[in-house]
Design a protein around this nucleic acid. Structure first.
Lengths: 130, 130
DNA sequence: TCTATTAAAGACTATAAGACTCTCTAATAT
DNA sequence: ATATTAGAGAGTCTTATAGTCTTTAATAGA
């Protein structure tokens, strides 16, 4: 069980956007270079973030990506969910009784992690990384 | 990112072993039937648990698997680590400076989950599941 | 000592997901 | 009108998961 590379790219890209003082959008080309990843691939990841409403995009010349207003409250969890999906890490597919005790324990522990990830905002990180 | 089915099988098998009052070892055949999984596959999973020292095995007629002494303190985390490995869920492979802030956040959240999984012992669960 | 039983190991296969690339289309500033 | 940039779709390559099948090793009991 591992986070996908896409999640790593997403987190770093969001941080890069947060650190950019420019009011103009940043092209995927520029963003991709910083991570040493192909622009087309990164664009797929960015599209997911756009669909979740955390990033806005503008096509055409001088276009690119920028954070949406309210971005200060975007959490790590938001970004991770956007890429990995929101479903639980553990699903007991066995049919034994109404509720699986193991599942309950697993879910509880997962929530602890999510709690922490929800606490960490992009803004927090941007502050310490500038 | 998902836990593997093998982890689910391992957790359930450990619980089954814990609930079994029998002093005699239980064969993989029996254990596999409860989970509706093939014996040879489950045996591979059990072998990992044996190698980690949580389960002991006896070959030959009337052989099988049983929990080792001290099993009461085995945690969910122990079992998960035995199957999934101990490495971090997130590793930032990008080379940007000495320490990645994002990595630090991810690691911290992961530890929260592990903390909870370490707290939950097999014995706790066995008590509520009998 | 022979036989039935059971775990362990190794090689192999199938499926799915991750990590991309390439190409084409749509939007927009100049 | 053209250059530039995002978005969408199909296709490829690699890796991990989830198994199966077969053989070997250990051991209890006749």
């Amino acid at each position: 069980m591992k986070y996908s590379k896409a999640t790593n790219y997403a987190l770093h890209t969001m941080l890069n956007l947060a650190l950019s003082k420019s009011s103009k959008p940043i092209g995927v080309q520029t963003l991709a270079e910083k991570l040493n990843v192909s622009p087309t691939y990164l664009s797929k990841i960015l599209t997911k973030l756009v669909k979740e409403g955390m990033v806005s995009s503008v096509s055409g010349a001088n276009g690119g990506y920028s954070l949406t207003r309210g971005w200060e409250s975007i959490s790590f969890l938001d970004i991770i969910f956007a890429i990995e999906g929101k479903s639980s890490l553990f699903e007991c597919g066995l049919d034994h009784g109404p509720q699986c005790q193991i599942q309950k324990v697993m879910l509880k522990s997962e929530k602890k992690m999510e709690e922490e990830l929800r606490r960490q905002t992009l803004a927090d990180l941007a502050k310490t990384s500038e």
